[in-house]
Design a protein around this nucleic acid. Sequence first.
DNA 1: GTCTATATATGGATAGAC
DNA 2: GTCTATCCATATATAGAC
Lengths: 210, 210
Amino acid sequence: MVTEENKSIEKRENILNVAEILFAQQGFEAVSIRELAKVADINIAMISYYFGSKEKLYEEIVLRKLTSTEKMKSIIEQHNTYTDKLFAISDLYADVFIENRNFHNIIFREMAMEQRTMMNAVITENLYKNFTLLSDIIRKGIKAGEFKKNIDIELVATTVIAVNKLFSTSPIVICKILNVDESEFTYGEKHKKRLKKYLHNLLTSYLAIP
Amino acid sequence: MVTEENKSIEKRENILNVAEILFAQQGFEAVSIRELAKVADINIAMISYYFGSKEKLYEEIVLRKLTSTEKMKSIIEQHNTYTDKLFAISDLYADVFIENRNFHNIIFREMAMEQRTMMNAVITENLYKNFTLLSDIIRKGIKAGEFKKNIDIELVATTVIAVNKLFSTSPIVICKILNVDESEFTYGEKHKKRLKKYLHNLLTSYLAIP
DNA sequence: GTCTATATATGGATAGAC
DNA sequence: GTCTATCCATATATAGAC
């Protein structure tokens, strides 16, 4: 049933989605609410009406999609060995970063800011929690005798995030590096599979006991 | 000898340096020439006088420090084995990214833009050239029997860049991950050494023939 | 909920005096 | 080279009609 309320929510959602893309592509300050209103096909006044201000709209975009730690936890529980758990989380990062690459573009731009804001603190806290789940798997894998002992736990966990991140948020350069045409390269399954497979191999060779 | 001309060049340099920091911290659009003039302790009109416009000032900041391929080439030539060549380039990335982290913050933000501009093209071309030097070392190392055959050359080269990049441009999160106090963590030698050593080990375990 | 019209602020840039 | 004063474009935000 399409109620009036649903219509209203849909419009709100539409503004959020369009704004997410524009903010990701150009940055917060570079996008005017006039341009946003044009692209989203709404009146300028609607942004204040729905969100109060451009700033509050931005906050909502950032906060609404932060990957929940719960999702990660449930995926970890679905696997038995620490190797499988690690692979699953690495794959999840690839999926989440690539599928929501506009969003993560915004997140990583925010992380690169040196001034500490409320949002910055929330983002850092969220990323840290997810990071902890990753490093805990490695730590436990070492204790269980599945992984080598003399490894840099923090930096190998950082590597998973860093590689997935660069791959998903710098499309032009990545296309050039992989020798793929940009029009063809929509981060399709083929390239995602390659990325996942590579990370599995990289992690295995660094962590696994020969 | 301090001539009038030198003084003028110094002032120009000062504006470039201050602007680089501000643009890195806040993004191009978020920095007003009024704020820039205040921090650099110059008059607003001086920006137009020296650079023509805010846009041209930005272009000069981006273009002036792009890592020359020549420097990389000379470093590569100084080493004999492909392993040593690879380590040297990996170390160079760590040094260059960390020492010029404000600059690289700007570069990577520009890379994340999906709209293609003149500057974007120059940056991509530069990064691609440096990337090619890196992947060539790996390719030749395989031919020479120093590295394994079944590896993903492009993605391992990307990894070197990705890890060094995240490490240098997201200080707040990295501090939290490494459990280091931010005031203490000025990307000192200690953490740089750790990063370099980790990448050596990671590359060795992925590439070296057991 | 949606629009127009407008208040108000701030941005980049420069003319012209010194 | 340096400054003040100012022009002009564009930004956000909202009051008030519908």
